[in-house]
Design a binder for these strands. Structure first.
Length: 589
RNA sequence: GGGGUCGUAGUUCAGCUGGUUAGAACGCCGGCCUGUCACGUCGGAGGUCGCGAGUUCGAGUCUCGUCGGCCCCGCCA
């Protein structure tokens, strides 16, 4: 590069610079060769500037320009000139000017890229990931990654202003039971022992409260060895927050303020405070603990209508404590037979045995109910469901959990299908009072719904031993447009309480000592009341960027099978490496 | 672990009920062009039809298996 110094970026030149000398550096985005005059779109992360190379202005530069190809790297020196009015390009911020080149420095050439680096990329994702460095050159990816930077920056600025200290916690830490599968790291120095990569810095941030740091935050990588989804990566970034002497409302206010700042990065105005809804209400109305409140189609309880009805199947379900619930689709009456069948398939995907429907038909009623069900019952259903003449009422029955999953799945499906979702809206929602425990049928014991360090509601403490399933927790989730973007709780800060919870979870005393002894110990030394939250940074940025996949806002993400096509990770390692770690693989491949 | 879906030039896709030499567009290479900006124009190269078996006189096409991408269920305190 000699001692060339860039004078402007490729997004910078304006008519005010006309007549000045300029030196730009960047990549050849496109070359348009007209013979004696060649146009080059020079691109860097700030934009595109048109370079003009004329044989009559500089023959040598023109000869160089003839050999240029896409993605070659150049430094171009020349004079900023105004474009003729009829040649102005209104699509470019720099479109009123161009750089008349007299020197082209060929900094590097490039292989032909395996796909075109345009915003509407049409390459398979695997190829994009294998050549991620090219994919990331695309303006859209540059925008996403810059947005991510802006959000992180805004969060640090805000948390600092609010008196929070960013403190790092270990990545090589201790595997703990409960929760997701750990990524393990073998210890060479302690053969046969393993570190775990943190699923979150949960215990460390609580210990930092015990240490008197009062207000902590960290933008931190977390690791969970579970199967992936569009919104789940094995390593992801969390905005981890914890504070001492917390009031829930103070914490909510803090986070709402944080969201205002973060969303301002994408010019989205957020109104506070956010609505609140208890877990129970969310399940009743939406069948989900993370309801998308951008549209209606709320669930309707029909259980009482069938408790004493002639329809045996539903009657039995209700009398055994199950539910019959429905969704009314306002204009669903026009659905064809096939469309109805498709809906049944969707319901089955969410665990339904079947799905019944009812709709008005002129003065009568049409339905997929068996003949034995009277028109009177069906009319009662239509009344309860507030069906209009064009409505369709979809009905599922079973255990509450089952019915909720079916209808919430169906609700989202119908919301999209009927175009009821306004993509320009950002509906935040605090979901509160989660159950402290959920019963695990397979393990036949209670599990912590949030995590084992969550405090129960004071008024429910008496039920810890008598009716664990009815105990509510001081836990809360932050939901945005039907996606969980954060979750937290007020924590247990007394050792005896913590031991009671471990006991309720069926964790034996010895196991509690072995796995959490260090923490139980720490709790004894003047632990302040504390609580916090963790926010999913990747998901927040994904929503702000309008993307459907986390991979679009992570520079180097993993595929659905947790591989990296760029580096080919994970890969096998040499026998020497393994033996040094005293590790043997049982898999021959 | 299960279900769905996709896999044909570098890329996006077409390829009929199995039947000549597997096509198009973009990209790439070469020629021409002094105002283009998705430049235009003329010409050219480019294929393990994901992989492996099977059925058949004959398979891109049918069957089975397998691998990979994506989506979903399980899983994700």
């Amino acid at each position: 590069m000699g001692n060339l110094v860039r004078s402007h970026t490729c997004g910078e030149l304006r008519p005010s610079s006309v007549g000045q000398r300029a030196l730009l550096m960047g990549w050849v985005d496109r070359r348009r060769d007209m013979g004696q005059i060649i146009f080059i779109d020079l691109r860097d992360r700030e934009g595109i500037t048109q370079i003009v190379v004329r044989s009559d202005a500089d023959a040598e530069a023109h000869r160089t320009a003839e050999a240029l190809r896409p993605e070659y790297v150049l430094a171009v020196e020349g004079t900023v000139v105004a474009r003729d009015p009829q040649t102005i390009n209104p699509n470019l911020p720099t479109g009123e000017v161009e750089l008349l080149a007299d020197r082209i420095y060929w900094l590097n050439d490039s292989q032909t890229p395996p796909f075109e680096l345009t915003d509407d990329v049409r390459a398979p994702e695997e190829l994009r990931l294998a050549y991620r460095y090219l994919d990331l050159r695309r303006p859209k990816m540059q925008r996403n990654i810059r947005l991510r930077h802006a959000v992180s920056w805004a969060i640090r600025e805000y948390m600092n202003q609010q008196g929070f200290l960013e403190i790092e916690t270990p990545f090589l830490t201790k595997s703990t039971p409960e929760g997701a599968r750990d990524y393990l790291v073998p210890s060479r120095v302690q053969p046969g022992r393993f570190y775990a990569l943190p699923q979150s810095p949960q215990l460390f941030k609580q210990i930092l409260m015990i240490s008197g740091f009062d207000r902590y935050f960290q933008i931190v990588r977390c690791f969970r060895d579970e199967d992936l989804r569009a919104d789940r990566q094995p390593e992801f970034t969390q905005v981890d927050i914890e504070m001492s002497f917390p009031q829930r409302e103070v914490l909510f206010g803090l986070i709402e303020g944080l969201m205002v700042k973060a969303f301002a990065c994408a010019n989205v105005t957020v109104t506070t405070p956010f609505p609140r809804m208890t877990y129970q209400e969310a399940i009743e109305r939406y069948g989900s603990d993370k309801p998308d409140t951008r549209f209606g189609l709320e669930l309707i309880n029909l259980s009482d209508l069938f408790r004493e009805s002639e329809f045996r199947v539903f009657k039995d379900i209700v009398q055994k404590g199950g539910y019959v619930k429905a969704i009314t689709v306002p204009s669903g009456g026009r659905y064809s037979r096939k469309e109805l069948d498709d809906l049944v398939e969707v319901a089955k995907q969410f665990g339904a045995q079947g799905l019944l429907w009812v709709r008005p038909d002129g003065d009568g009623v049409k339905s997929s109910f068996p003949k034995a069900v009277t028109e009177e019952t069906l009319r009662a259903v239509l009344r309860r469901a507030q069906a209009n003449p064009d409505s369709l009422v979809l009905i599922a029955a079973g255990a509450l959990k089952n019915v909720s999953e079916i209808l919430s799945g169906l609700r989202l499906h119908l919301g999209r299908r009927e175009n009821l979702i306004d993509n320009g809206r950002y509906n935040f929602l605090w979901v509160t009072e989660f159950p402290l425990f959920v019963y695990d049928e397979k393990e036949r014991r209670f599990m912590a719904m949030h995590h084992p360090f969550t405090a129960p509601l004071d008024e429910d403490i008496d039920r810890l031993t008598t009716a664990p399933e009815a105990v509510r927790a001081k836990a809360y989730d932050l939901v945005l447009n039907g996606m969980e973007i954060g979750g937290g709780s007020l924590r247990i800060h007394r050792q005896d309480h913590q031991r009671t919870i471990f006991q309720a979870l069926g964790i034996r005393k010895e196991e509690a000592e072995e796995k959490f002894g260090f923490f139980l110990n720490a709790l004894q030394y003047g632990t302040p009341p504390h609580g916090g939250i963790a926010l999913g940074l990747d998901r927040i940025v994904m929503i702000l960027a309008g993307e459907k996949s986390l991979r679009e806002v992570i520079a180097f993400p993993k595929t659905a099978s947790a591989t990296c096509p760029l580096t080919q990770a994970p890969s096998s390692v040499s026998p020497a490496q393994l033996s040094e770690l005293r590790i043997q693989s049982t898999d021959t491949e």
